[in-house]
């Protein structure tokens, strides 16, 4: 039983990461209707930037805002420079460009920082507290950051004029343009925000796994799964979905283990993490493409 609680707790901690990444994916999906396959690599790149600053001797809490701003600018310029000309292009072109971006970020990180594994210190103090047997301070910190991020985004979209303008641009570009909203810049802003959120996700995940160019592959897949479970059009849903798949991932491994212990038959374990994500993605896409909290889009013929 204790082990089960521990598994759930660490699932929630992993879920925080997936939630962050899912949030970034949803930001881009809501504002541009694209699924950004390069999101994971962008987050990984941001994590490397942060590592570089730490390596130069900066404090984490000074480095983080710098990295977030730089990532924001990178995201913004990707939209303005690379994706703008593809407005109205077929889906395939956009997907191929995303794959190109993925390749560029992946290889650039490898070229600049090499493929050797790097340790990334946790920014949270290593203290013991009640329940620290179940969950580490870094895990708890990740959860707090994710929830804080979601709250900040919610406030931004709900209470600021800029947030309102971004929502308007996403929901009805034509009317928003008539009302004086610069829709083009809102899309770019959405990309910038997504990159910034991704940067936070990257710096949070780097201490939990080791820092290297491949670190995001499986996390991105779970981020996708989380976004889909929650509904890829709903930021709150994406966060919930991220936590759900995080817990699910650990429970599957736990019960797989239990099954093997009782019956001696190995069905599923830690080695099938990606397969589980694949099954989640396909199941959600076929049974309920709008996810748990997303709204159904009606297609006009």
């Amino acid at each position: 039983m204790e082990q089960l609680i521990q598994q759930i707790a660490s699932g929630i901690a992993n879920g925080a990461i997936y939630a962050c990444l899912a949030l970034a994916l949803v930001m881009i999906f809501v504002s541009t209707d694209h699924i950004n396959f390069a999101q994971g690599e962008m987050a990984m790149f941001s994590a490397f930037l942060c590592w570089q600053l730490l390596d130069w001797g900066l404090n984490f809490w000074i480095a983080l805002p710098i990295v977030v701003v730089v990532s924001f600018l990178i995201g913004l310029s990707i939209e303005r420079v690379i994706l703008r000309p593809l407005h109205g292009a077929p889906v395939l072109s956009v997907v191929v460009v995303f794959i190109g971006l993925l390749a560029i970020f992946h290889s650039l990180a490898g070229a600049i920082w090499t493929h050797t594994i790097k340790a990334f210190p946790s920014p949270f103090p290593q203290v013991a507290f009640a329940g620290s047997g179940y969950i580490g301070p870094h895990q708890l910190g990740m959860i707090a950051v994710t929830v804080g991020l979601l709250g900040a985004l919610f406030a931004f979209f709900r209470f600021t004029p800029l947030g309102l303008a971004m929502r308007a641009a996403a929901q009805n570009p034509a009317s928003a343009r008539l009302a004086g909203v610069s829709v083009d810049w809102m899309l770019a802003l959405g990309w910038g925000l997504a990159a910034a959120i991704g940067a936070v996700a990257g710096t949070m995940v780097a201490p939990a796994v080791y820092l290297e160019p491949n670190m995001m592959a499986s996390i991105l897949l779970y981020g996708f799964a989380g976004a889909l479970v929650g509904g890829i059009s709903s930021p709150g849903g994406a966060v919930a979905g991220g936590f759900i798949v995080g817990v699910l991932e650990n429970l599957v491994a736990y019960f797989g283990n239990l099954l093997e212990k009782i019956t001696g038959f190995y069905l599923i374990g830690n080695g099938e993490k990606l397969t589980v994500a694949l099954i989640i993605v396909i199941t959600v896409l076929t049974l309920k493409p709008s996810g748990l909290f997303g709204h159904v889009t009606v297609k006009r013929v």
Binding site: I35, L221, F224, L228, L274, L285, T286
Partner: peptide, 22 residues
């Protein structure tokens, strides 16, 4: 069958990533 465009890309992306594990 039920998927189009980006969603199909996503499902097949997941397949591609999971292949070595399978």
């Amino acid at each position: 069958l039920r998927l189009e465009g980006h969603y199909l890309a996503l499902a097949t992306f997941a397949l591609a990533v999971a292949v070595p594990q399978i």
